Amino acid sequence: MATFETELPRVLPVEGIPKFANPELARELRYVCSPRCKGIIAISEATRQIQLRLLEHFPREQAIIGPKLHVLHPPQPVLQEKNAVVKEGPVTFTFVGNEFYRKGGAEIVLAFSQLLRENVISSNDVRVNLVGDLRRTHNVAHQEFQDDAAFRVSVEGMLRECPIFRHHTSLTNDAVLALIKTSDVGLLPTWQETYGFSVLEMQACGCPVITTNVRALPEINPENAGWLIRCPLNPMLELTVASVSDKTLLRSAIVSQLKTYILQIISDSKIVSERAKNSLARICLEHDPMLFRERLNRIYMGFKTDKNKTFF
């Protein structure tokens, strides 16, 4: 058995060779086809779809591997039971992402700074915690169209000078969880993500999250439990940045939708309470560690009727 996040086998690209003509990929697929490989477990439905698209190029292997393919989302215990109480005072938002720029930290700074400049919110309305390393400037989703130093200087200047922001380069895991437990809304407007484990941790603390819609995020962050920033996706369920214009349009869409959700949250805190309750409910129903163990055991035991069922 093997659990995987993107596709199996995972073969790095070779310059000058089309992906599906790579002999290493064909060679490694033989191991997945082997009778000794009893099953492969996709971590999300998005991952299953990516695997199926890979197998479309290998019909013989698809016939063998397809019946072995399962979906099982990871376990997550509840970390804090929150009372759905509407409280007075500023709304606290929290972002956690070591790769600050890839995970959407810049877009968060832009969205809140623009709302402040437009005078539609005040510094008394919000507090924004950001945990991430500003030195991690490379954004894999941007490919060769990386942000320049002037952009980063501008973002980091706003982050440093605006009183609503509280930035930490890094915190221990316990400190991160303590921060989330005192937060109202989580933030992950990410450019690229294979799953989104931090979303599960936030939901498990009763903290609903604003995310983009890449890869597995719509599965784990349905709109009754959080807020989805909708962007156009490619067949890999990811964002495509093939030009500076693509990047600019996507950034504008992320920031614009983020601003809309921030204003909704500030104007009606009952929305937050309702989604906090639903976030905890979905963690209990769909990621309970005991249920995960049972479902994993059923896959290992070859429970035939659930071969192609999605297990949350």
Results as ranks from 00 to 15, higher is better:
Q51N: 04
I164K: 02
Y195T: 00
F312R: 12
L134W: 03
V214A: 02
I210P: 07
R275D: 05
R60T: 02
D148Y: 06
V241I: 15
V153A: 10
P163Y: 03
G66D: 09
A242R: 12
C37A: 09
V131L: 04
V126P: 08
T3I: 13
K103E: 04
L171P: 07
I108L: 04
Q203L: 12
R60H: 10
E7T: 11
I17P: 05
V241L: 06
M236S: 13
V78A: 08
G97S: 07
E81Q: 13
R282T: 09
N119R: 15
V85S: 13
T194M: 11
R36P: 01
A216C: 02
W191L: 11
Y195M: 00
N224R: 11
V214Y: 04
E56Y: 01
P59E: 05
I210S: 03
F303R: 08
E81R: 14
C231H: 01
S113L: 04
E107A: 09
V214M: 01
V11N: 10
R230S: 08
T169A: 13
M1S: 12
R30V: 14
P208L: 07
I64Y: 00
N297Q: 13
E61H: 15
F145K: 00
S252Q: 15
I271R: 15
C37F: 10
M236R: 11
L52W: 05
V214Q: 05
T47H: 01
Q264I: 00
L263P: 09
I41D: 01
R53S: 15
L130P: 02
S243T: 06
G39K: 06
Q114C: 07
N308T: 06
P75S: 10
T260V: 13
L187T: 13
S245V: 12
L228Y: 01
R251K: 15
R160E: 10
Y261G: 02
I254D: 03
I50H: 09
N297Y: 12
A178G: 15
D268P: 00
V86I: 14
I41S: 01
K247C: 03
C37K: 03
E24V: 09
L69N: 00
V272F: 00
V140Q: 11
Q146R: 06
K87C: 04
S256A: 08
T182R: 14
A26C: 03
P67H: 02
S267Y: 05
F145E: 01
S113F: 04
A106V: 04
E193Q: 05
N119M: 11
A178V: 02
D125I: 06
V176E: 03
E161A: 12
S252G: 08
E223G: 09
T172P: 07
Q76P: 04
E274T: 14
G104M: 11
A21T: 07
E274H: 11
V153S: 10
A276L: 07
